[in-house]
């Protein structure tokens, strides 16, 4: 994995463009889908943070999946859900300590960030660069997630 998300909460203005971009990128049958990224306000709303999957080294989602439907895409480094394999038992949704496996209630499927195949739409559309997807060590990260 050469690229990773760099999140700078100080720059996030809570515009939710990232969510929109994600939704559109993951549209189902031409309609916007469930976003895999959430702009979450801090407790006092004084600060917004874009929260999405961190593609952990030892991910609880994959560990909790008893049918081995979650595996790493070696090209992008993303932990991806094989929708054909998934049995929708909610184990990963419950197990992820960051809340980044999501139950898409509308389409009744479990989704998570797949890094859009290597070019995450959220980062591309972030107007303030609060969220960038860049090679490791290319700029001094403010907050590395």
């Amino acid at each position: 994995m050469t690229n990773r998300f760099v999140v700078t909460p100080n720059l996030c203005i809570g515009c939710r463009t990232c969510e929109l971009a994600c939704s559109f990128r993951h549209s189902v049958n031409g309609k916007p889908g469930q976003t895999r990224i959430f702009a979450v306000a801090g407790p006092m709303k004084e600060m917004w943070v874009p929260v999405t999957c961190l593609q952990c080294e030892d991910p609880a989602c994959a560990k909790s999946c008893l049918v081995d439907a979650i595996s790493r895409n070696e090209e992008t480094g993303a932990m991806e859900i094989d929708q054909e394999k998934c049995v929708k038992c909610m184990a990963c949704v419950a197990a992820c300590p960051f809340g980044c496996s999501i139950h898409d209630q509308q389409h009744h499927m479990i989704v998570k960030c797949d890094l859009c195949g290597g070019e995450p739409a959220c980062a591309q559309f972030c107007p303030t660069k609060a969220l960038v997807y860049q090679p490791v060590g290319s700029a001094k990260p403010k907050v590395v997630a």
Binding site: V7, T8, P9, N10, F38, V40, A41, G42, P43, M47, W48, V49, V51, A60, K63, S64, L66, V93, A94, A95, C96, P97, F98, G99, C100, S101, I102, H103, K142, V143, A145
Partner: peptide
């Protein structure tokens, strides 16, 4: 079966995200 801390399961995914945001915000602070 999979050696996942039981504590992980005490909070829902939305609250997990809120926690994540808080923690990341704190570090940013």
């Amino acid at each position: 079966m999979r050696d996942i801390p039981e504590a992980y399961f005490e909070v829902c995914d939305a609250c997990h995200r809120a926690e994540t945001a808080t923690n990341m915000g704190r570090i940013a602070g």
